[in-house]
């Protein structure tokens, strides 16, 4: 392989577990170093995504900022991947979908136990919450979905390895099945 591919990653409404799983590919990271260059990512602290070959998104879409980031990734990345259960289904954060946003915020900031000076935060610095948490494919087109909570390091490595080598992407049964 010649020049390294550019990769950007982001965690939206997720727990960073998928990013941890990415790091969990251990010494194989060294194999990847020569082939991958990170753009915007929690690993680099670059704030704005530039033109990339691959974007990896962890987490669902829960607020206005998530929407903006996701759209920026879609504009800049040739291939965009939903990594993990939350990106694919909304996951744990989407459990709030059975309540109204008002119920959630009132419970957290007005009526919950041990609350001092109850008020719903309204600082313009804070991104506004969407009334529901959505999987990312409901906002932008997604090219690949990597299931798992998180997808195992093996799955992530296999995906990157096959993508880099230009092979059709295929997984061993255990890598994408959980039954």
């Amino acid at each position: 392989m010649s020049s390294p591919i550019k990769v950007a990653t982001a965690s939206l409404a997720g727990c960073f577990g998928c990013h941890m799983s990415l790091l969990d590919i251990d010494e194989r990271l060294i194999d990847l170093v020569g082939h991958i260059q990170f753009d915007r990512s929690p690993l680099t602290d670059i704030k704005k995504v530039g033109p990339c070959d691959l974007g990896l998104i962890e987490g669902g879409v829960c607020n206005a900022e998530n929407v903006e980031i996701l759209k920026a990734f879609r504009r800049q990345c040739k291939i965009l991947v939903a990594v993990g259960a939350c990106a694919i289904n909304g996951g744990v954060p989407a459990m709030r979908n059975q309540y109204s946003l008002a119920e959630c915020l009132e419970e957290a900031y007005l009526h919950g136990t041990g609350i001092d000076n109850p008020q719903i935060p309204n600082d313009p610095e804070l991104p506004l919450l969407l009334n529901q948490v959505h999987p990312i494919h409901e906002v932008v087109w997604i090219d690949y979905f990597l299931p798992g909570c998180p997808p195992s390091a093996d799955t992530i490595f296999t995906f990157l390895d096959e993508l880099l080598s230009g092979r059709p992407i295929q997984f061993a049964y255990q890598q994408i099945h959980y039954d």
């Binding site: 935060p121 309204n122 506004l128 969407l130 009334n131 409901e138 906002v139």
Partner: peptide
């Protein structure tokens, strides 16, 4: 296209925060 109306889905939060 997104599957839902992005701006409309912020309406409830706008009402709650007055923003």
């Amino acid at each position: 296209e997104p599957a839902f109306d992005l701006d409309a889905s912020l309406e409830e939060a706008r009402l709650l925060t007055g923003r």
